[in-house]
Amino acid sequence: MARISRDEVARIAALARITLREEELGDLAGQIDVILDAVAVVQEAAGADVPAMSHPLEITNVTRPDVIVPSLTPDEALSGAPASEESRFRVPQILGEEA
């Protein structure tokens, strides 16, 4: 049984901000299905009493002294920008025209 439909792949791709082409949608739905079947075995591995583990190190709240250290200059920070203006990143419009 298919776990994920073409429409669902389209919805997920929109969440992930990727405009998939028509042929990509179809291919991916099939491939993701096969992969999910292969990994679904994890659902049978552990009981409710097993805690989840997100990280190999048991560390929390790593802090450093609050002192000013050298950082990138505006020119260095903007050196890879697709577009910049007045020492800032220039981006396409974020809000609608009426805003």
Binding site: V9, A13, A14, A16, I18, I35
Partner: peptide, 21 residues
Amino acid sequence: SLTRDAGFGDEVKRRIILGTY
């Protein structure tokens, strides 16, 4: 969204979609 479609290859897209799911 257009940039990420053009810039990422098939395996990277596959894993992003799988992970987002």
